[in-house]
Design a protein around this nucleic acid. Structure first.
Length: 682
RNA sequence: GGGCCCGUAGCUCAAGCGGAUAGAGCAUCGGAUUUCUAAUCCGAGGGUUGCAGGUUCGAUUCCUGCCGGGCCUACCA
C-alpha cells in the first residue's frame, strides 16, 4: 500500500513537472520519509530540481503544492525549509484499504524462479554456517512466494568429491568397518555427528604419513567407479548424511523440491554435452605448453598474479570453501604470470573439475544443456510434500525441474570467483539472457568469536585470541553443529515456558518452546545484513530479549490475547473498518490531537509488501527483519500507552481494536515470510 | 601483487538512488507491575562515522590516497 502510493506520487510529480517545463530533462524524484510523522509521510527533496528548473527549491515546492491538483490517496502537501516538499497521506484512504486486508497490486506474471540453497556436503553434520545459508535461502524463497512468484527450491549435493572420500577412508581404514557395519551405523539417530568427528580424525590421520594420504587418492578413484564396493559405501554414507540434513532443516521448516547430485551430473554425462558446446564456441581452449600444458582452460576476467608463498592444502568444505595453510608445506611460486589469467576447467589427466560440473549444471538450470536428470522421490515431509532426488534411471512420472528463466544461488561470498566463472561461460556460449538472470545471492560467512571457541573447548593460539573472529572448519571439527544449537535454544526456551505456564501440559510447552527457539534462531540469522560477517556468540544467539525473534513473537501473542479476552475475532474487526461506518470512525480518531502516534502504527503496517519488494530487489532479507522488529516495537509502546479493553468510549475501543488487528496481521505475515510462527502463549 | 568486502556509541549492528537532529539492541545507571500477565515499557549517559584530501546546496554514503582487518586468487571440491 505504502509502495503503491509512493510510486503514484513520484509518477504524478514527474508528469506535472514535465508538463510545466517542457523540454527540460529532470531527475527522478527521491521520495523518502521525513524524520518524524509531524512533518508528514513522504518527503521529497527539491534540491535536485533547482538547477534544471533554474529556480529555488522552496519556490518549486510551492509551485507543486499549489498547482499539482488532487492525487488520490494524498491529503495535503507542505513546503518545508530548506527545500522539502512534505506530503501527507489521506489517512482514511489508506487505513480503510489496509483494514480490508488488501495486499499490494498483483505482480506482473512471469516465469518460475529457481533458488538453490543449502548445498551442504553430505559428509558431516550441518553447522551454523550452513544455517545462515539455509535460512537466508528459505526466507528468500518465501519472499518470492509472497510476491506471487512460483519458485523451485534446489539443494545441490556434492556427493563425489574428496570430502566424502575422506569419511569413507575413516570408516574403512581407521575404523576398519565392513559395509554391513557401516550400514548399521547409518541408522543411528545422529549419524552425521559420528561423521563429523570421524572427518576431523581422518584429517589428522592424513598428516601422520604420506602413505595415509595416498589412501585418499585411491579411495577417490574407487568412488568414481560406480560398480565398486567403495562407491556403494560412499553412497550409503552420503545418502544417510543427506537425510540427516533434511531432518535438521525440516526442524526449521525449510524444505526442498529437488536434490540434484553431482554423481548424476557425472554418470548422465552432463559434462560431455557442456564440453562440446564450450569447445565449439571456443570458451575453452587447449593448452599445449606451459604450466597448464594438457589442460582445457578458460580465460579469467580481471585475473591475478599470485605471490603465494605459504599454503595450500584443500579443505573442500561444501560450497563454503575453507582453505587452510599447512605448516611445512611449501608450494613453489608460479612463474608464468600469463598463465595465471587462466582457469583450469579440465585437468591434464582428462578429468573435469568442480567448476566444469557447475557450468554443466547451470546450463541444465536454464534448459540449455539438452539433457535431463532421472528423478525419484526421496523424502516426504510431514505435510506430504515430496522432495525429489536425481538418479540415473528414475520414475516415469515426475515434476518438471530446471529449464527456468531466472535463478538465484545462495552461496557464500568466498565462492564469487567460481560463480563469476560460470556466468562468464554462459556469456561465452552466447547465453547473455541467461547470464543476466543469474544472481549470485552472496553473503558473508559465520565465524566464531574467540570467546565462543574457548567455550567449545578449543585451545587457541595467542594470535587467534587477538582476532575478532575465527573461521569454522569442518576439517578440524571446529564449529557449532546446527542440531546442537537448536537443542540448546529449545532447552533454554522450555525452561522459561515451564516456569511461566505450569498450567499448560508438557507436550504443548515443548511445542511452544520449539517455536520460540526457531524464532530466535531464524531472526538471529536474518537480522544481520548479508555483507556482515557474523561473529557467532552464544550469548547473542540465545537471547530472547530486545531485537530478537521472540520479541516480535511476543508482540503477536499480546495482541492475540487482547482479542481472546475481548471474545472477538481480529480479522473480522479489521474488515468491518473498510465499510462506511468504519471509515467515519477512522476519520474521527485519526485526526484527533493524539492521533499521530497511532497513525504511525498504521503507516508501518502498510509497508509489508513494500519492504518485501525491497528485499527481493536487493536480495537482502534483513530489511524484513527490521520491519518486523519496528512493528513489534511500535505495538509494544502503543500497548503500554493505551488500555484497550477498559476503554469506555465504545467507538474508540473498536478503533483501537482495529489498529491492533491490522498490526497483528502484518506482523504475522512478516514473521511468516521469515519462517517464524507466533505461538499461542509465551 | 590483483579482485571483492569491512572499519559507525564500551560491545553487536542499522542508516532505501548522496538529504532534515547518525539510529536500534546489549551492557551500565535510574524509574514503571491492583491493568490487555514485565520475554514489556519510560528515562539517562555514551559519537571528530579509521585518517587525510576532493566532488557540492548537502557526504556515514560518491572519488583519490593512506592505516587496520577479513575473504578470494589451486590441474580441491
Amino acid at each position: 500500500m505504502y509502495g503503491f502510493l509512493e510510486h503514484r506520487l513520484a509518477a504524478t510529480l514527474l508528469e506535472f513537472l514535465a508538463r510545466r517545463h517542457p523540454g527540460v530533462s529532470l531527475p527522478t524524484p527521491v521520495i523518502e520519509q521525513p524524520p518524524n510523522v509531524e512533518l508528514g509521510d513522504f518527503a521529497i527533496p527539491m534540491f535536485p530540481f533547482a538547477k534544471p528548473l533554474r529556480s529555488a527549491p522552496l519556490k518549486i515546492a510551492e509551485a507543486i503544492r499549489t498547482e499539482i491538483g488532487p492525487i488520490e490517496g494524498i491529503a495535503e502537501m507542505q513546503v518545508a525549509p530548506p527545500g522539502y516538499l512534505n506530503v501527507r497521506i489521506d489517512r482514511v484512504w489508506l487505513t480503510a484499504r489496509l483494514a480490508a486486508g488488501e495486499k499490494a497490486a498483483a505482480t506482473t506474471p512471469s516465469g518460475k524462479i529457481l533458488v538453490e540453497h543449502s548445498s551442504i556436503n553430505p559428509n558431516k553434520a550441518a553447522h551454523i554456517g550452513h544455517l545462515r545459508n539455509a535460512i537466508l535461502g528459505d526466507t528468500f524463497v518465501r519472499l518470492l512466494q509472497y510476491a506471487g512468484r512460483e519458485v523451485d527450491v534446489q539443494n545441490y549435493i556434492d556427493n563425489t568429491g574428496v570430502q566424502v572420500a575422506d569419511v569413507v577412508v575413516g570408516f574403512t581404514h581407521l575404523e576398519k568397518k565392513s559395509r554391513a557395519e557401516i550400514e548399521a551405523l547409518t541408522r543411528q539417530p545422529r549419524f552425521d555427528y559420528y561423521c563429523w568427528d570421524l572427518y576431523a580424525r581422518v584429517s589428522q590421520w592424513y598428516e601422520q604419513s604420506t602413505e595415509n594420504k595416498q589412501t585418499r587418492l585411491h579411495t577417490l578413484h574407487a568412488i568414481e567407479d560406480a560398480s565398486s564396493e567403495t562407491a556403494a559405501i560412499a553412497d550409503l554414507i552420503s545418502v544417510a548424511v543427506l537425510r540427516r540434513h533434511l531432518e535438521t532443516m525440516d526442524r526449521l521448516d525449510i524444505e526442498y523440491d529437488f536434490l540434484p547430485r553431482e554423481s548424476e551430473i557425472l554418470h548422465l554425462h552432463f559434462w560431455d554435452s557442456a564440453f562440446t558446446q564450450l569447445k565449439d564456441s571456443a570458451v575453452l581452449t587447449f593448452e599445449s605448453a606451459g604450466k597448464n600444458k594438457g589442460c582445457w582452460v578458460m580465460r579469467r576476467a580481471g585475473a591475478a598474479k599470485p605471490l603465494t608463498t605459504a599454503v595450500p592444502e584443500e579443505d573442500p568444505d561444501d560450497r563454503l570453501h575453507v582453505i587452510e595453510p599447512i605448516e611445512g608445506v611449501d608450494i613453489p611460486k608460479p612463474k608464468d604470470i600469463a598463465e595465471e589469467d587462466q582457469k583450469v576447467i579440465v585437468r591434464s589427466n582428462g578429468t573435469v573439475g568442480y567448476v566444469g560440473k557447475d557450468i554443466a549444471y547451470h546450463m541444465w538450470k536454464f534448459g540449455l544443456l539438452g539433457r535431463d536428470f532421472g528423478y525419484r522421490k526421496f523424502y516426504r515431509y510431514p505435510n506430504q510434500h515430496d522432495c525429489w532426488i536425481s538418479t540415473t534411471d528414475g520414475e516415469k512420472e515426475h515434476p518438471h525441474f530446471g529449464d527456468v528463466a531466472e535463478i538465484y544461488n545462495v552461496i557464500d561470498a568466498r565462492q564469487s570467483e567460481a560463480q563469476n566463472t560460470v556466468v562468464e561461460a554462459l556469456r561465452g556460449l552466447g547465453h547473455n539472457d541467461a547470464a543476466d538472470h543469474y544472481t549470485h545471492f552472496s553473503y558473508e560467512m559465520v565465524a566464531l568469536t574467540p570467546r565462543c571457541a574457548a567455550e567449545l573447548g578449543y585451545t587457541l593460539s595467542e594470535e587467534d585470541k587477538t582476532r575478532s573472529y575465527i573461521e569454522v572448519s569442518g576439517r578440524k571439527g571446529f564449529g557449532v553443529k546446527a542440531d546442537d544449537l537448536l537443542d540448546q535454544l529449545i532447552a533454554s526456551a522450555k525452561k522459561e515456558v515451564d516456569a511461566r505456564h505450569p498450567q499448560v501440559d508438557d507436550p504443548e510447552r515443548l511445542r511452544i518452546a520449539t517455536q520460540i527457539a526457531i524464532g530466535a534462531l531464524r531472526y538471529f540469522m536474518l537480522k544481520y545484513t548479508k555483507q556482515s560477517v557474523i561473529a557467532f556468540d552464544f550469548k547473542e544467539a540465545l537471547s530472547f530479549e530486545g531485537e530478537t525473534g521472540p520479541y516480535a513473537q511476543y508482540a503477536v501473542v499480546r495482541a492475540t490475547s487482547i482479542f481472546r479476552k475481548a471474545g472477538t475475532d481480529p480479522d473480522a474487526i479489521a474488515v468491518e473498518f473498510s465499510g462506511k461506518l468504519g471509515k467515519d470512525i477512522l476519520a474521527k480518531h485519526l485526526t484527533a490531537a493524539d492521533a499521530n502516534e497511532i497513525w504511525e502504527l498504521w503507516l508501518a503496517a502498510s509497508k509489508t509488501s513494500y519492504v518485501v519488494a525491497q528485499c527481493i530487489a536487493t536480495t537482502e532479507p534483513a530489511y524484513l527483519a527490521k520491519h518486523a522488529f519496528q512493528l513489534a516495537q511500535l505495538f509494544n509502546t502503543f500497548y503500554h500507552r493505551y488500555p484497550i479493553l477498559s476503554e469506555s468510549d465504545e467507538e474508540r475501543k473498536q478503533f483501537l481494536l482495529a489498529t491492533v488487528a491490522v498490526v497483528r496481521r502484518e506482523l504475522i505475515r512478516s514473521l511468516a515470510v521469515m519462517g517464524i510462527e507466533a505461538p499461542p502463549v509465551m
